[in-house]
Design a protein around this nucleic acid. Structure first.
Lengths: 179, 179
DNA sequence: CCGATCATGTAACGGGTTACATGATTTC
DNA sequence: GAAATCATGTAACCCGTTACATGATCGG
């Protein structure tokens, strides 16, 4: 998914202004993520406007700076639906890149070079992180159900939960092996 | 995992020449992957040589161009082990980015906009792809066991297999839902 | 009054991608 | 004889990151 369709998709759901995307998406979902940054957003927004994929309408607020509410245009919707039906971004180009799924594995790949006590500490640390993630996922799912979020989006988080459970089990096994 | 430690790690295992890495790694594991390309490799190799992380020794071959066999230096090993023990690249900075794990989900996120027959076709397509991947993973694991590959690397592919199984089950459920 | 938040924007810098270049050998 | 493989390398261009800029209001 290119950044373009990522941004476009956000406005398919609901008109919003740039800073809204920064707050709700970048800070919540991708905090401190490179690739996704505020400088890039506003440049992309201007590019999309030039391509007539989006339109901006100024909304004045009392006591606060103006907002530029962004609406997706019919051209933008077309572009987005074309992407949605296309096969782009559906198959990963990598054969065995588990590191991308779980970057910690890029270290495990070389753990024969590390003493056992350090390995054990690493796995235990990961287990804690993973456990916390799993708990957050469950909470997020409950919240989504309460908010009546789109069925497919709930299914996505369910997938995430199952993967995280596999991760936890795998880490537990690694710890048990070493103990 | 930065590209630097990725490359360095390759030479920790065994001395090799640049083209060897291109063949065995880029083509096999990351075919057609951006981020990883041959232009970048040779520039990185030169940079690493300047930093005295690696050394090159020319090996003449009859009938074929010379190879520059690359050896990791003690400094390079230190750098790599420091990275290995550090906490860098261990925790993902994203909270809910399942799309990175499985890019197809970036589409599913908007499937309410697609008619059911097209969705079903998409899920079935993914199920086939995933099934094939799973079979390849099992084969790869067998091959690794036969070749007596490092225990942790086999554990990594076992993790990959479990995740892929989750994916297959999830896709089957999605298909069943729609049928 | 100082820092944080809201809100939008610009631009330099760095670095990765892409494309090109070389040249010998093997294969069809 | 053309195309593919082996093997290494350079550089222009593009684009993303980072950092900076603005300016008003709210909370302490």
């Amino acid at each position: 998914m290119g950044f373009k369709h990522f941004v476009l998709g956000y406005f398919v759901d609901n008109p919003a202004h740039g800073y809204d995307l920064i707050k709700k998406c970048f800070m919540d979902f991708f905090p401190a993520s490179p690739e996704i940054n505020q400088g890039r957003l506003y440049t992309t927004l201007n590019k999309l406007e030039k391509e007539t994929m989006i339109e901006k309408k100024i909304k004045s607020q009392e006591d606060l700076p103006d907002q530029k509410i962004i609406y997706i245009t019919p051209e933008g919707l077309n572009e987005f639906y074309d992407w949605l039906e296309s096969t782009a971004d559906e198959e990963d180009d990598t054969k065995f890149d588990f590191f991308k799924q779980y970057s910690f594995l890029s270290k495990v790949n070389y753990y024969k070079h590390l003493p056992e006590d350090k390995i054990l500490a690493k796995f235990r640390g990961q287990l804690e992180i993973s456990g916390n993630r799993l708990r957050r996922f469950y909470e997020a799912k409950e919240e989504m159900i309460q908010k009546n979020v789109d069925h497919y989006r709930i299914k996505i988080i369910e997938y995430g939960i199952e993967v995280e459970k596999v991760k936890v089990e795998w880490l537990k096994e690694m710890v048990a092996e070493l103990e």
